[in-house]
Design a protein around this nucleic acid. Sequence first.
DNA 1: TCATTCTGAATGAATGTTCAACAAATGATA
DNA 2: TATCATTTGTTGAACATTCATTCAGAATGA
Lengths: 228, 228
Amino acid sequence: MLETITPMKTADAKDALLEPAGKAETEKRGRKASKEVRQLQLIEATIDSLAKRGYAETTMADVADGAGLSRGIVNFHFESKEKLLIATLQHMYDEYSAHWRASLEKAGDDPARQLQQLVWADFDRSICNKRKLAAWLAFWGEAKSRPTYQALSSSRDAYYQQVFIDLCTTLKQSGSYAYEPQVMALALSAMLEGLWLRLMMGTEDTTRETALQAANAFLAAAFPKHYG
Amino acid sequence: MLETITPMKTADAKDALLEPAGKAETEKRGRKASKEVRQLQLIEATIDSLAKRGYAETTMADVADGAGLSRGIVNFHFESKEKLLIATLQHMYDEYSAHWRASLEKAGDDPARQLQQLVWADFDRSICNKRKLAAWLAFWGEAKSRPTYQALSSSRDAYYQQVFIDLCTTLKQSGSYAYEPQVMALALSAMLEGLWLRLMMGTEDTTRETALQAANAFLAAAFPKHYG
DNA sequence: TCATTCTGAATGAATGTTCAACAAATGATA
DNA sequence: TATCATTTGTTGAACATTCATTCAGAATGA
């Protein structure tokens, strides 16, 4: 099981600069900022570049410029481009992971509500926005040919899938459905990823709203007794 | 000169030509082959490289070596790397497009059977194999930041989506279902793409067989009167 | 002073493109 | 058919560019 749960020591730093890697608060542009702040700043600039230029065109210079710092800075904080990208992927993975776990947490004990919350979590603005989706897609495109990425790049890991299966199992019993839980869980999670994919690619007929409608339609069709 | 003999590659290229039956068996490796054969050979080598190394690491030298030809050959047949990649994408798009249209054609007039055939077509070996899926994913990862790719890279185009919507509309009437056709069509096609995505990434729990099961489970849940 | 953070020019490696020369096919001529 | 000319296809070395990395030294804070 490969899920490095990096707790929120980055949270403080994140508050300090928010998303747009332009120029934010006080410390940043000057000379010194804490190591963590700088690293997060560079990671955010990396996501920007991935979203704007794609993986193949993302250069160290792009990242440094995007962060408003000098060329050599990235090799100082991260040892290499490879490690910067891995750190960026890890950051996004941790964020996604923390987000759905929190959603599940606050859903209470009702399995139907838990599943609903998990689905909704996927389309929450904090996770599901053009910039981050584009960065995800950029990584996915390279993941299969880079063993180092594979573990982190699916965002929805084995544990996530198991939660889906367990919920489908429970709902099947309480609703007397006919499906195989494992199979239905696969169909459901695949659909969520497929909707993400369409949002990433900017397909015209898919927006966050229509995606959510489609997901709800699926739930209603698969679990009519619970989401009728 | 280093004239490395590449038996596997020529075999791949042979698979690629099929149609120009007649000659093409003998001429191919030596000095001259028809323009079309050579171009197809290079396109196939490009797909190989995309699948093996990913987009960012695919070089002109890789492609030339993969085809067993010299370095400068690609710029002769295609003007630039960019145009080679576009031709490769176009080739895959055309192949996918022709495949689902043919499947639809031979499905007859029954809409339930037509939809079933479309779903099956997606997981046919000729379309859905590691090599081609990996190449698709490589393009998807770059599509959003390259306007030239966007039109071709979704493989399932607007017309394909409209066919889905029409079929959902018809089935809704004949089965008295409650869903909105457009929404259900989105859910269905998103799930197909999501299953592809999982196959591409090599997620363990997903094989061509389990993917097909999941797709069938979806159909059974969404259209119980037709696929019960 | 000392350690840490940062800069920007220099370096070297990788890679897309060009091109002059060469080889094979095709056509022309007789 | 034999010979030459021309077009077409192919090669590999040379070239120019881009880019990640290095590093000596400056700037900053303790």
